[in-house]
Design a protein around this nucleic acid. Structure first.
Length: 272
DNA sequence: ACATTGACCTGGGAGC
DNA sequence: TGCTCCCAGGTCAATG
């Protein structure tokens, strides 16, 4: 479910409450077998640690503690939420219990999510981060960089944009939305984009993601922030999920095609 | 190296 | 009500 704006929203929500949490009193793992196993010594390593920062890299949430960086990916259906008591819902797989009584709970029906641990600040060297591309809200996401990466690539630009080795954080919703805003056909081979098109696309990706963050992300079904609230960006979507509806710009019918097995929404009138 | 496909897992909605 | 089928915001391994 969650793309960059949703993950960013969760990070900010947790960071807001972080100063009041105190130290980790206990960690309870109910189910270890997520996308990979939660490390067997996860509970003992984190006990007594204090989280001093919550940050994001790509679609990963990172909790920096005294000695460790906890890496968490939400997969398609994962969430972290604050809970008061030790309530345990179906698919709650891990509770982190703080000295102020708050519980931070990882919930993930499909178990595509991930919780892992590395030494503090060593995240960039892990297998999860090693092959990640540039951050889309960073200055390194530039025309020259993307032109070079896309050189001779025949894969559709929409697929290229979603490949985390190129640029991170853009998933199925925001890829369609950014391409619509940039007026670029999602099927266009990545290597065929001119520098003008790349310039438009980079601006569109940045503004789409920033807007979505401002709206607290997109909730199509499951997504909730750490306080259990839904996002609001679903009301702003131009093409995603709107097959057959009239384009907000040219009134043509929004189309849906499958690219690399993912539903891809676009407007034939606007995106040449 | 690159492009494409299926697998991972569960739940919800559509159709019968 | 219940069954089957298809779909879902992500990533990775396997295949040409």
């Amino acid at each position: 479910m969650p793309e960059l704006p949703e993950v960013e929203t969760v990070c900010r929500g947790i960071e807001l409450k972080r100063p009041a949490l105190g130290a980790i009193e206990a960690v309870v793992v109910h189910r270890r077998d997520l996308r990979t196993l939660i490390p067997r010594d996860f509970e003992s390593q984190l006990k007594g640690q204090k989280i001093f920062r919550v940050r994001r890299r790509a679609k990963y949430i990172i909790f920096d503690t005294d000695d460790y960086s906890v890496l968490s990916h939400l997969g398609m259906s994962g969430s972290w939420r604050f809970a008061n008591g030790s309530e345990r819902l179906k698919h709650d797989h891990c509770h982190i219990i703080f000295s102020n009584g708050e519980h931070l709970v990882f919930h993930d029906p499909r178990r595509f999510g991930l919780i892992d641990l590395c030494a503090l600040g060593q995240d960039e060297g892990t297998k999860w981060f090693k092959h990640l591309g540039v951050e889309p809200l960073d200055s390194h996401f530039s025309v020259s960089h993307m032109l070079k990466l896309a050189q001779k690539r025949t894969t559709p630009i929409k697929t290229f944009l979603m490949d985390q080795k190129n640029v991170v954080g853009v998933g199925n919703i925001y890829a369609s939305e950014a391409l619509f805003l940039a007026k670029i056909n999602p099927l266009c081979p990545a290597g065929k984009l001119s520098s003008t098109s790349w310039s438009d696309l980079i601006k569109s990706v940045k503004s789409t993601l920033r807007q979505a963050i401002r709206h607290g992300g997109t909730t199509l079904r499951d997504y909730r922030n750490s306080d259990g609230e839904v996002g609001a960006y679903q009301r702003e979507l131009h093409v995603y999920g709107r097959e057959g509806a009239a384009c907000r710009s040219c009134k043509a019918k929004i189309r849906c095609v499958s690219l690399s097995g993912r539903a891809t929404y676009w407007c034939k009138g606007c995106q040449k």
